[in-house]
Design a protein around this nucleic acid. Structure first.
Length: 581
RNA sequence: GCCCCCGUAGCUCAGCGGAUAGAGCAGGAGACUUCUAAUCUCAAGGCCGCAGGUUCGAAUCCUGCCGGGGGCGCCA
């Protein structure tokens, strides 16, 4: 957690300065956004003059000049000049840049806590019991976990909810199959592949054998009635699956554990009540034998309203009912003010229906923010849905194994002197980092190609680039040894230092934006840019061999702050930041 | 039929109201007795799907169209 006071970003201070200048140049106008942005040709630019010119009835450049004249030199801005149509180009004094670096270093980044006081439920991962996790679970898991860590780092309280598929008709089938095939090897194996095989066998039986299907259905009834023998097998199935999920979570450095479990089974005892409440409120009505919620905004191919089915015509409950129950629970019991649901984009309509019904029921109101956070499909390298040759989903463990093996080959070739243990560690770190970075660096809503070849090539815009930058930073700091870092504000700032200082100072704003939009890829994009700016700095500005002691101290401060920022960012993404590579 | 997402360099993708649209990969030219070359530097590569509109300014916002993907009653 960040307990040290927040450092105000240079951009924020400049905004305030320019806004004040605008008020003086144009007395009586409404406060407006000064439109301060980072510029390519200057440190910052303010673009508000163009927007104001019309209403002020003055030529844009003349107005820009008037604003420029009102920018006081005692603020962070050293020079302000009109450029182009009416942009105000702003540069900062070198001393200001060093001062900001020292300030952030002293504060240990100095991130603000804009989410303090908020309680956010993040529903993510949600694998199914007795099925192996596949690529489809990767996105929900890593995007969700990054949002969780991000909100926590910004002062928010987060309640993780892993809504695993641990209930439903498929368990009748599984348990009945085990009952009829006592020799089936699965129990105690902690190997999800075996469980997955069990699922397939049972499903095949279910489809092919009508008599078995009937027995499976009776088994569902027994399960729901609380039959102890049936429940015992169910608990075993859940336990074995959880062990496998947790193994993957540890491997991915995902922060989920058993305390975050919020499976479908948890809601089973409450479904009757949820349905009763919605029925009593007149929201749920009967249609074609099922109990449904209709909303004229959601229509089907014939233009008829489509239902949210709370109780099926056979009397059973489906996922819509459980989703309504979780919604109610999160608002009433968990006191959440924000709720994020990380599922793929295909469920958009379903969640729109659930949220609409929740609003009608009065469970959520204007004080709640309920958001379906969708993500695109994972495609294979060929651009088609990512499936094995036989059409199955691709197992996550196999994918991670392949990534680590690929990384291992590259690492070994790069650094033949590594001993086995170090090679294992670095291969795991880079391989897993490559997979996570590939996912987290792609915009959330776009479908993305899972191209393992490209991922483990470990060149360019991959996780390794960030890890390598971190290892270089750590290397410099090791060699620099202990001792205080003294920043000399009077030293000049060169181009590569300037780019680094300004980039570092933007971190908090990027985090805030990533959190507001639920878009972790903004963090990844920022970190890649930071690593790039650092790599360039590394190439051009010697640190330990700097020309003067003052420069050495200043650059060392930059190295420390860059390492801190990169390390922080990588930890949000759940990517290891190695000291050596 | 309606709704959602996507269409940007040869390929994979960023950018989503500001100046000359960026990166990675691939291809071209350079840089390792110097803090880790898993890197850096330079050059080349674009009717930002099409057509209108809004705006001082549009890849970005709005409308329509074209192309691709997904969703639309008892699976999650």
């Amino acid at each position: 957690m960040n307990t040290s006071p927040a450092v105000i970003a240079l951009g924020t201070r400049i905004e305030a300065t320019v806004a004040a200048a605008i008020r003086r140049a144009l007395p009586g106008t409404e406060p407006i956004d000064p439109l301060v942005r980072r510029g390519e040709r200057t440190d910052f630019q303010a673009n508000a003059a163009l927007a104001l010119a019309r209403s002020a009835g003055r030529p844009p450049r003349e107005l820009a000049a008037a604003i420029t004249a009102e920018i006081t030199p005692d603020g962070p801005i050293e020079t302000a000049e009109v450029s182009g149509p009416a942009f105000v180009n702003l540069t900062l004094a070198d001393a200001e840049l060093w001062r900001q670096t020292a300030l952030r270093l002293d504060a240990g980044l100095g991130l603000p806590a804009p989410y303090a006081g908020t309680v956010t439920v993040v529903d993510y991962s949600a694998p199914n019991v007795a099925k192996r996790m596949h690529v489809g679970h990767l996105r929900s898991t890593v995007i969700g976990d990054t949002l969780v860590k991000l909100l926590e780092s910004l002062g928010g309280t987060v309640i993780r909810q892993n809504h695993i598929g641990d209930w439903g008709t498929q368990f009748g089938m599984l348990i009945q199959y085990l009952d009829e095939h006592p020799g089936t090897a699965w129990h105690g194996t902690a190997d999800i592949a075996v469980l997955d095989g069990l699922y397939r066998s049972a499903a095949a039986h279910f489809a092919a054998d009508a008599a078995f299907a009937d027995r499976a259905r009776s088994r569902v009834v027994a399960l729901q009635a609380g039959d102890e023998a049936t429940l015992a097998v169910w608990r075993d199935l859940v336990a074995v699956s959880l062990a496998a999920f947790n193994k993957i979570y540890r491997r991915l450095d995902v922060s989920l554990s058993d305390v975050d479990l919020d499976g479908e089974s948890v809601y089973n005892p409450h479904l009757d009540d949820v349905v009763a409440e919605l029925t009593d409120a007149g929201i749920a009505v009967e249609s074609q034998g099922a109990l449904c919620v209709f909303d004229e905004r959601f229509t089907g191919p014939e233009g008829n309203p489509i239902p949210l089915i709370l109780r099926k015509s056979d009397g059973g409950y489906g996922y819509a009912t459980t989703d309504m129950a979780t919604l109610r629970h999160r608002v009433r019991e968990l006191k959440a003010t924000r709720m994020l649901y990380l599922t793929d984009a295909r469920q958009a309509l379903h969640f729109a229906q659930v949220f609409a019904a929740g609003r009608r029921a009065g469970w959520i109101d204007a004080s709640h923010e309920v958001v379906h956070v969708p993500f695109g499909t994972v495609l294979g390298a060929d651009g088609r849905p990512f499936k094995t040759r036989s059409g199955d989903t691709v197992a996550l463990t196999g994918l991670l194994d392949a990534a680590v093996a690929g990384a291992r080959a590259v690492v070994a070739a790069k650094n033949p002197d590594l001993d086995g243990a170090a090679l294992d560690r670095i291969a795991a770190s880079t391989g897993i980092g490559a997979v996570k970075y590939a996912d987290l660096s792609t915009a959330r809503t776009t479908d993305y190609r899972f191209d393992i070849e490209r991922m483990v090539s470990l060149n360019g815009d991959t996780g390794v680039y960030l890890q390598y930058a971190h290892a270089r930073l750590a290397s410099i700091l090791r060699k620099a040894g202990e001792g205080e870092t003294i920043v000399d504000e009077k030293a000049p700032v060169n181009t590569s230092e300037r780019a680094l200082v300004l980039r570092l100072d933007e971190y908090a704003a990027v985090l805030a934006e990533a959190a507001a939009l639920n878009e972790p890829h903004r963090i990844a994009t920022y970190l890649f840019g930071l690593a790039k700016v650092f790599s360039s700095f590394f190439d051009r500005s010697p640190v330990l061999k700097a020309e003067t002691a003052a420069l050495r101290g200043n650059r060392l401060a930059l190295v420390r702050l860059t390492r801190l920022t990169l390390h922080h960012g990588l930890s949000l993404l759940g990517i290891d930041a190695p000291e050596r590579m």
